[in-house]
Each structure stands twice: as C-alpha cells, then as structure tokens.
C-alpha cells in the first residue's frame, strides 16, 4: 500500500523522483547532443547545396546587418552566397535560403521553415511553376514583385500574401548580397 503522506515521506519521495528524473534527462542530453548538432548541420549543408551551384570545400558562415536586420549567410568559394532571409507570411514567419551566384543571379531558393495554410500558401514548397521563376532570376533586369504589384512574378493561385512574402524575402536576400559584395571588395 502507498506510503503514509507525512511531510517527511512526501519531501523524500519528490526529491528522489526529481533527482532521478534530472539524471535521466541529463544522460539523454549528453547522448543526443552530438547527433542533434550533426542533424542540424546536415540540414544546413543540404540546403546550401540545393541553392548554390556545385562547390568545393565547406561554406564559411557569417553575419551581416542590413537595414537594422541581422542576416546569416554562407559563402562558398567560386559558387556564391547562400543567405537566410525571414519575412512574415500569411501564417507567421517564412524563412528561406536564397542562393545567389557570383554573377548576382539567383541560383535557387528553398524554404527552411514556414507556417502557411496547408493546401494554399504551403504550396510555396511544392509549386514547381512558382519556384522555377526564381531560378536564374536576374534582379537587375526583372523586378522581384508579384504581377499584382506590378512585378514579374506569377503568384501562387489564391496565395498572394504568401507569394509576396516569398518575393520580399528573396528581395531582402538580394539587398544583403549587394551589401556583401561592396564589403567584400574592401576586404580583398
């Protein structure tokens, strides 16, 4: 039968349980810390490889501030920059990885995380026609706005807000790239 509910018993029991549980969680953390870091690293590497032309070596990570917003970017030698850019979509933050090659053209884009409506805005991760528009896009010649706003991009059907957010994220990445290029010339 259950132990009597005296103050001593309760305190002892709770402390013992908490102690053992913390030990278990701690052990699990130690065991999984490396695999978790590796999984996150693998995901970043895969995204960089997806948005940039083939490159050698490990991309170099850096941070830059443009218009008061911090951006993380990866510089791959002879390939270009992969820039992480976040805007606000229909359902919340929309985070993209945008690859821009050394000619200033967008090589490819990929969605890192989003919370858009399934079946509508969430198509920004699967709609081939929409995503293909960004490949080889030259921001000097065309405008990164949806057609409704007078630009050159077809929006995803019934998801103009998501499409706008996507275009804005890419445009921000282009701005980051231009700043990086200016800064980069000074360094060399």
């Amino acid at each position: 039968m259950a132990a009597a509910s005296t103050l001593k018993n309760m305190a002892l029991c709770l402390s013992a349980v908490c102690l053992i549980c913390s030990a278990v969680v701690g052990a699990a953390y130690v065991v999984t810390a490396n695999p978790i870091a590796e999984a996150a690293q693998a995901k970043t590497t895969a995204s960089i490889a997806a948005v940039l032309p083939a490159f050698e070596g490990t991309p170099e990570q850096g941070n830059i501030q443009v218009d008061g917003v911090d951006y993380t970017y990866y510089k791959a030698d002879d390939a270009g920059y992969a820039i992480i850019s976040t805007t606000s979509g229909f359902g919340g933050a929309l985070t993209l990885m945008v690859g821009i090659n050394d000619d200033g053209e967008i090589h490819n884009t990929t969605v890192l995380s989003h919370s858009e409506t399934p079946g509508l805005g969430a198509k920004c991760t699967t709609d081939e026609h929409f995503m293909a528009q960004f490949r080889g896009f030259d921001p000097d010649e065309k405008s990164l706005l949806v057609k409704k706003d007078g630009g050159d991009l077809d929006a995803i059907t019934a998801s103009t807000i998501t499409s706008r957010a996507y275009a804005k994220a890419v445009a921000n990445a282009v701005a980051v790239y231009q700043k990086l290029k200016e800064g980069g010339d000074d360094d060399e």
Binding site: M1, A2, A3, T6, M10, C13, L14, V17, C21
Partner: peptide, 21 residues
C-alpha cells in the same frame, strides 16, 4: 513500479515528473 512507494498526496506531481522525463 514506484506506485507503492509514493505517498498519496504527492501522487500527481510524481507521475507528471516521470511522464515529463
């Protein structure tokens, strides 16, 4: 396993701690 050793009054906190772990 631990039920027989747990005093009745702290039953729920103990269970929740185990589950949360």
């Amino acid at each position: 396993l631990i039920a027989p050793m747990v005093p009745d009054k702290v039953r729920i906190p103990v269970y929740i701690t185990v589950i949360a772990t």
